[in-house]
Design a protein around this nucleic acid. Sequence first.
DNA 1: CTTAAACTCTATGGTAACTATAGAGTCAAG
DNA 2: CTTGACTCTATAGTTACCATAGAGTTTAAG
Lengths: 144, 144
Amino acid sequence: MVTIESSIKVRLVKIGELAKLTGCSVQSIRHYEKEKLLATLRRSDGNFRLYDSATVDQLKFIKHCRSLDLSLAEIRQLIALNQQPGMGCEDVNRMIDSHIEQVALRINELQDLQDKLMALRTSCASQSTVKECGILQTLSVSRK
Amino acid sequence: MVTIESSIKVRLVKIGELAKLTGCSVQSIRHYEKEKLLATLRRSDGNFRLYDSATVDQLKFIKHCRSLDLSLAEIRQLIALNQQPGMGCEDVNRMIDSHIEQVALRINELQDLQDKLMALRTSCASQSTVKECGILQTLSVSRK
DNA sequence: CTTAAACTCTATGGTAACTATAGAGTCAAG
DNA sequence: CTTGACTCTATAGTTACCATAGAGTTTAAG
């Protein structure tokens, strides 16, 4: 009897190449492993991490999620859900919806902030001295 | 000869009252002190921090700056500038301008993110299973 | 075969602006 | 004089990494 592992030759890469293939840094990969988002398939005799092509895809998935600013905790959840193919995916939808909401909130906050900063900026003419600076004066007055 | 300090009675408050007066947390105040943004006027016999009303104003200034998301380093700079009343205030203007730019950049980033999240969200109908979930499928495909 | 460069390993400290906690001391009222 | 509220310092935790040290591994060249 021959095991799949011994009969099929799989190309394994070290962490540096995995990093290049995915555009992640080596440290990120080790960090994802520590955070249980990514498993190391096996180690070389010298204890180097070795990965197969499935791992490359998993890491790309993680990277895609990160580019959408999903937290590592959320990504961990998505990976877990992904392993329950038969279940409903309402949880996935809920997560994304809530994320959209968070981002919308943050955009609004920043927009308010932007308005305040612009108003503040108009309070000082460039040629002024620190003593007369409208910005510093405004900042010294507490807001209602 | 009588010093000003001994002849005029100043109302001094402890850190808890300073916190109430300004809406800052006690820990924040201690943190600002460690970061050299705020000095403690003096200590009680029992080593409690004591503050006067000028400190209340300084802390309000800091709080106002923080509400505009200025970093502690930037605030430290503003405080230093404030102590050079005769100098031009171009540096103040520059700082605020650069801050406005940063915020604008961040808003744009978040807006892009929002668009991507919305697109992602439409890829899954709520009644689907994990296996068929368009969101998970989309996330599994690396972006161009 | 040996050596040197390039790579990898683990462990640790740093980032920003705090929050939360522990364990000890101080103060004010009853 | 005791109890509760307050304060003190020091330390760990938050998030997603990056940077570094010091040691070991691999590989290509000589």
